[in-house]
């Protein structure tokens, strides 16, 4: 499916089977997150998530 980048407005190709939370790196440099809400599938800029882990 083709959605619009919320930052640059250009189209973004998103796999049809994309799950909520899926991370898409757009050509404009923005890292986007797939969100599903009542109106369907949308994209939003991904918050800064630094990595850590447990034992």
């Amino acid at each position: 499916m083709r959605l619009e980048c919320p930052v640059c407005g250009l189209p973004v190709e998103v796999p049809d089977d994309a799950l909520p939370g899926e991370v898409i790196e757009h050509d404009c440099g923005t890292v986007l997150e797939v969100v599903h809400d009542g109106d369907g599938v949308k994209l939003k800029p991904l918050d800064d998530i630094r990595e850590d882990w447990g034992e």
Partner: peptide, 24 residues
């Protein structure tokens, strides 16, 4: 506490999930 983490899921794609009970 880690609120969210990015994982490589079973399809090899990056995905954000809740962080569970882990932290830094």
């Amino acid at each position: 506490r880690k609120r969210r983490v990015i994982i490589i899921d079973e399809r090899g794609r990056k995905r954000v999930i809740p962080g569970g009970y882990t932290g830094k």
